Simulated scan of single mutants.
Amino acid sequence: MAHFGIGVSTAVTAVPDTLKLAVQADRGGLDLITVSDHPYYPDRLDAYAELGVLLGKTERVSGLVSVTNLPTRPAAMLARTITSLSALTGGRIVLGMGVGGLWDDIARLGFTKLTPGQAVRAFEEGIRLVKLLGGGGDPVSFDGEFYQVTELVPAEETMPPVWTGSVGPKSLAVTGRVADGWMPGRAADWLSERYRTSRPVIDEAAVAAGRDPGEIATVYNFPGRITAEPLAQTRAEDGRWIGGSSAQWVEELTGAVLEHGAAGFVLFGPDRSTPDEVAAARWAGEIVPAVREAVAK
């Protein structure tokens, strides 16, 4: 069953519209609301504070930080945040994890700058540790290069699926070894060169780790216009999706699920903007139900 979501703003100035959009997504039957995580910008909301409020104002939709800036959120504390949100919302949470990219900004917050190699190793350790800290069981001791915990009792709450935003080959391999889902970077889709070269790295690493690659979902951040009338071309010359009418979106997304194994889509407006109320209504009311129906057939 594919997941359908919508990306909402983290701008402080957009709070009233963001709250409205989250409630609209929930009432419209969407599966996910997602927020980005850039805690070093003062004009942006803290991702988990925002998500907690959005989930508190909704009843069915799940929340995802796409993706958590791991270097600024130590893994054991992140695990507690996630299991707490899960307990508070009846499990309406997915854990998105990222290596961290804007290291000058991360350093300004007082966190140690890591080399690319260190960052990927910390990323893998972080995912492994987080997964140990949910679902009950014996106390956990973990003596890693970057994370150490001693006799830490896991939360009883089950840890939700972990989706990554891996981009480079080493972090893609981490996704194959330890994650449950992948959201391709730069809003790349199933027809992109990024997908064609990246997904095999995930699959090979999964097989090498004794895992079934088919169990690692690919969920796409998918920007575009939803137009009243069909467009003559739904993709640009470089192959990137532009958008089109609701019927054109339905055809595209149904094909992505049935022919390319897509496991979900998060709607953004053009250039990764926040969708407006009209686009959100067409997405939830026209496109998503039609894709669900077509896939079910």
Rank of each mutant, 00 (worst) to 15 (best):
K170L: 11
Y48T: 01
A173L: 04
L133C: 12
V291T: 12
A11F: 01
R128P: 02
G176Q: 05
L64C: 07
A279K: 08
T112L: 09
R80T: 14
S66K: 00
R27K: 13
A122D: 03
A247M: 07
T68C: 13
S171H: 04
D37Y: 01
G255P: 12
L109W: 03
W190G: 03
D138T: 14
A107I: 02
G136V: 09
A296R: 15
L78G: 05
G7C: 03
E259P: 06
S273V: 06
G181M: 05
D31G: 01
S198I: 08
F123E: 03
H38K: 01
S66Y: 02
R196Q: 15
M97T: 13
I33N: 01
G56C: 04
F222N: 12
F146S: 05
P223M: 13
R211F: 12
L54V: 07
A284Q: 10
G210T: 08
A87R: 14
L109N: 04
E252H: 15
V178H: 01
L114T: 05
P223Q: 12
G135A: 14
T18R: 02
G176K: 05
S245W: 08
V65T: 09
R272Q: 14
D189L: 11
P71V: 06
V167Q: 10
V94P: 00
A119R: 12
V15D: 03
D143M: 02
V120T: 15
V140Y: 01
E151T: 05
G144E: 03
D105S: 12
H3Y: 13
A281Q: 15
G28H: 08
A256L: 12
V149Y: 05
E193D: 15
L85P: 05
S66D: 10
R121E: 15
A122L: 11
L258G: 09
V291G: 08
S166E: 11
L45V: 00
F268R: 13
V219K: 03
A47R: 01
M183I: 15
A279P: 12
H260A: 15
G101Q: 06
G28K: 09
R199P: 10
A247K: 14
G269R: 04
F265Q: 07
T115K: 07
E215Q: 15
